[in-house]
Nucleic acid binder design. Structure first.
Lengths: 341, 341
DNA sequence: TGGGCTTACGAAACCGGTTTCGTTTTTTGT
DNA sequence: ACAAAAAACGAAACCGGTTTCGTAAGCCCA
């Protein structure tokens, strides 16, 4: 613990000025002469003065901190994505003097608990909410409390809040059309259930492309997963067991796709010769997989940057409706998709 | 932004007591009567009083926050591990009222920059340092400044600081002996170079087991990687190209192992029939891989908990030497290791 | 020369807690 | 019954900034 840090009082004393003047000089107020500002800046530099963050926060009634509360299954489900995303967030926040606070309470089953604790303790100025659902209790509560936040993903109340999302509908249209162009006619999908609003949108895109091509979508070829690879595996096994099995599967995310590929192999089906699989997210590991995973992707770094900027804007008073951004994903064609058998 | 939050002054006024008494009552001081304590607690509950974190921090000269600064390549290299680890950290910290602050400055090439900024701004009470190297500038600096920290992994100066580590030497002895027991005699290793002190220790364990079994270790069968899957792939290709290729490879981490398996496949070598591969970390994705990855593992959750407790202890004044903990990893036998051909 | 305007700065209050120290009140001892 | 000790609480300083408001000094102009 540092003991000998110099306070604004020390600085004022050393300069023979009042702390009020020093404070305003450092903050560029108009009613301080240029000569004094220069003197103060020089002395601050020389004495190594660093304003105390705690004191600033108390005086400004602002924490300059934004909160990210992790879902209980964060590690298993969205591992790589989250690390890249939080890194991008933190990186975009720090030049503005903001910090990223990570909260996790596995113990408490209530999804609101973490948010409430951070708000009550006044530890954050706003939130980034990830993995949004269609009906999202966290979003409802934050809206009700008028707390700034930006959602990564839309919700049923998307019109009312700030969000950043990737156009899953379009993405899955593209992915499905890609498969259709390769000659596939029997295509299945594994969704994320109601764990992710985006899942429903992606399903719509899938169905649109199928309809447009006049292809049928049997009811049990749209199966509900839980975003995990394990579930992708079991659902994949269901898909592949009949004689009338699909020749291609689009998956709500990469983890699920990994599971589906494993299931295909279990049934002795080669990928992509006998079954094509497409994922969604573009995690780096997909490239090492066998076969390398074809997927829909969009720069995570940029997502983090955009979300961070939007949130800072909100905290400074911007209108949430001005920060709703829909981005397009791109098809990253690797080797898990190929011509229909 | 909440406006109407009740302060300790409001509470004192409402009770007809001084704020000093209220403060001490809430903090359980001995010189406050039980009756008063009960009254204060009841009123606090009723009015929904929540102490301001900023004010507490200023008065206590403590931030109750610990910092984690991400390495620049965090997302690519140690994705899944990091999410699980930070979640575990945050989870263990929050019951003690501590928060986890994530910092990342990709822009600044200086590995110390993030630490210095957080310390100068007095934003944290201590650090968790990950991915330690043998000569680690961050550790040197933190020691010099007498700032509490616990390292995840040892360094050359391990005797001087608190650390949590997994016994990589023993782990790689176990992994190598496992392969030897399966009949392998030609075993290679891919290390992490000097990116990770643990890498050197793991190499020692590997060599020990080989020596004990009287097996030779050709110089170019210990190849240097960078912890990434991509590098595992290129190094694996080197290993497999000659006629005298190894029948098994132990890898410094799972990502590298994934790359090696891909390389094996590129050379038409089946895993594990013709080549066995063992990783290290035990990430969840390993189970979905084809074949599921045999690896050395240890509960990440528990690591996080132990590190968090150690750091809190340090901040409360404990001796760093009392918090040096070496844990044993376990062999997680899946399908990427099998009998020698 | 004196009244009105700027300009540049200082005094003091404030943010919301904690802590030191002193004072009043009650209890204890004889 | 009275002095001494203990118990319970209040006043005020403090942590280190920001901000409001007031004022002295310098300048302009009649």
């Amino acid at each position: 613990m540092r003991k000998e840090s110099v306070s604004i009082n020390d600085l004022a004393l050393h300069l023979g000025l009042s702390k009020a003047t020093v404070s305003r000089a450092l903050n560029g107020y108009e009613d301080i002469s240029e000569r004094t500002k220069a003197r103060v800046a020089a002395a601050a530099e020389q004495l190594g003065y660093r304003p105390s963050t705690s004191a600033r926060r108390l005086a400004l009634r602002q924490t300059e901190t934004i909160g990210l509360v992790l879902p209980p299954d964060a590690g298993e489900v969205s591992g790589i994505f989250l690390t890249e995303f939080t890194a991008a967030l933190a990186d975009a926040l720090s030049p503005q003097g903001f910090d990223l606070l990570i909260h996790s309470s596995l113990s408490d089953p209530n999804p609101l608990a973490g948010y409430q604790r951070l708000v009550e303790a006044r530890k954050v100025d706003g939130f980034v909410v990830i993995r949004t659902r269609e009906q999202d209790a966290r979003v409802d509560w934050l809206l009700e409390q008028h707390i700034p936040f930006v959602a990564h993903g839309r919700t049923a109340r998307a019109a009312e809040h700030a969000w950043f999302d990737i156009d899953g509908e379009a993405a899955f249209r593209v992915a499905t059309e890609h498969l259709i162009a390769l000659g596939h006619r029997r295509i299945a999908m594994i969704t994320g259930g109601d764990l992710l609003y985006s899942s429903a949108l992606r399903e719509i895109g899938f169905r649109q492309a199928m309809n447009a091509a006049g292809l049928p979508v049997p009811e049990d070829w749209v199966r509900e997963g839980d975003l995990s690879g394990h579930c992708g595996f079991t659902q994949g096994q269901q898909l592949f067991q009949g004689p009338e099995r699909p020749t291609a599967v689009v998956c709500v995310n990469d983890a699920t796709a990994f599971g589906v590929i494993k299931a295909a192999r279990h049934h002795g089906l080669r990928v992509p010769q006998e079954v094509s699989v497409i994922g969604y997210d573009g995690v780096a590991l997909g490239d090492l997989f066998d076969p390398p995973l074809t997927t829909m992707t969009r720069s995570i770094d940029e997502s983090g940057r955009v979300v961070a900027q939007a949130l800072l804007s909100l905290i400074r008073g911007a209108n949430p409706r001005e920060h709703q951004s829909l981005q397009q994903a791109e098809l990253l064609q690797r080797a898990s998709s190929g011509c229909a058998p």
